[in-house]
């Protein structure tokens, strides 16, 4: 095990998998400079055939990534901020997410779109979104939202060894947090398998991305108040491990979902709906969602803090649920 930050873990995953499979290609805006650090050193190691800076042309980038994958080249398309995926959305939404079905299963699409998500650093509304609810609704594309360096490495390596299109989202606030990561070159994290970060008996908290860290702090505080929290990080939203979540709620009878995305039609609301369908009779209180409101993110730091989930908001929701 070695201690590293989330972006370093992803960097290690790129290095290991690109060494292992010499067909993998990575391209994107400024991947040589690497704004987030996750692609640092790749160009020097693998050269300009396999690691390419692109123009700021998201439509071409996403479309080409899918075409290259279809032709047998596993491709990493680095989009920097997830809002930029929206200017290249055709390649993701109409091509990557649909081509395998439309070709009757002929196409294998080993393409991984990488982008940062989340607010909290005053980047303004066009660099602060957490847009996975939109991606979850596309029908045919996997979505990874790792919250720990170990999961980031293992999920990236699984994506690069697989043949399915994947959107790999980096919670920005977590990028600087360090954690223990396996050095085993075959360390993989499966898609569709939630991580139970701590077991508990009174309440289930499902936390996604940046909210995992907030929820850990909330759980610690709740423990001091005598509340036993079961904390679940789904890690991938497609496929979503609803079995683990539903089983947990059947045990605890209470659920809070913490999710930085806007509330409307979100991962949080979807999880709440699934639990309502499948574990209604186990619920002892209404399900609570801690999410961002349905407005664009403002710039001023105090307003960002007011709108985003944090440990206090998660704790408050949990206490309301316990009282319910």
């Amino acid at each position: 095990m070695v201690k590293m930050r989330l972006t370093q873990a992803i960097n290690a995953a790129y290095f290991e998998e690109m060494e292992r499979n010499e067909r993998i290609v990575l391209f994107g805006e400024d991947v040589e400079v690497s704004m987030f650090g996750d692609t640092r050193g790749l160009h020097a190691r693998f050269g300009s055939g396999r690691v390419r800076n692109t123009p700021i042309s998201e439509s071409a980038m996403t479309g080409m990534a899918v075409g290259a994958a279809m032709a047998g080249t596993p491709t990493i398309c680095h989009l920097m901020f997830s809002n930029f995926a929206l200017t290249g959305f055709d390649g993701i939404a109409n091509q990557a997410a649909k081509l395998r079905l439309m070709t009757g299963g002929q196409a294998r699409l080993p393409v991984t779109f990488v982008a940062a998500i989340g607010a909290g650093t005053s980047t303004g509304a066009q660099h602060s979104d957490t847009p996975y609810p939109m991606f979850m609704n596309l029908g045919g594309i996997n979505i990874a939202v790792p919250a720990t360096p170990a999961d980031a490495k293992g999920l990236m390596k699984s994506a690069l060894r697989g043949f399915n299109p994947t959107i790999f989202l980096l919670p920005r606030v977590r990028g600087a947090t360090a954690g223990e990561v396996s050095e085993d070159s075959d360390f993989l994290v499966p898609y569709g398998k939630a991580s139970v970060l701590q077991e508990g008996t009174d309440i289930t908290i499902v936390a996604i991305g940046s909210c995992v860290n907030h929820a850990l702090r909330a759980a610690k505080a709740l423990k001091e108040d005598g509340v036993s929290v079961e904390l679940i990080d789904p890690r991938t939203l497609v496929p979503l491990d609803t079995d683990t979540i539903v089983a947990s709620v059947r045990k605890t009878g209470r659920l809070v979902v913490a999710d930085e995305a806007r509330d409307r039609c979100s991962a949080a609301s979807h999880i709440a709906a699934v639990v309502g369908d499948e574990a209604f009779s186990s619920l002892k209180a209404p399900i609570k969602r801690v999410t961002a409101p349905n407005i664009p993110m403002p710039y001023a730091p105090a307003l960002e803090r007011a709108l985003l989930p944090d440990p206090e908001k998660i704790m408050a929701a949990a206490m309301l649920t316990m009282a319910g």
């Binding site: 067909r23 290609v25 055939g49 396999r50 439509s59 071409a60 996403t62 479309g63 080409m64 990534a65 899918v66 075409g67 290259a68 994958a69 279809m70 032709a71 047998g72 080249t73 491709t75 055709d90 390649g91 109409n94 091509q95 081509l99 439309m102 070709t103 196409a107």
Partner: peptide, 25 residues
């Protein structure tokens, strides 16, 4: 034949990606 495409211009990106794949290969 990597596909007819219902999105006008969609096939252009896919073909360019296939060209990239060909170049790397």
């Amino acid at each position: 034949m990597i596909g007819a495409n219902g999105i006008v211009g969609g096939g252009i990106g896919l073909a360019a990606g296939a060209a990239l794949s060909a170049q790397v290969a």
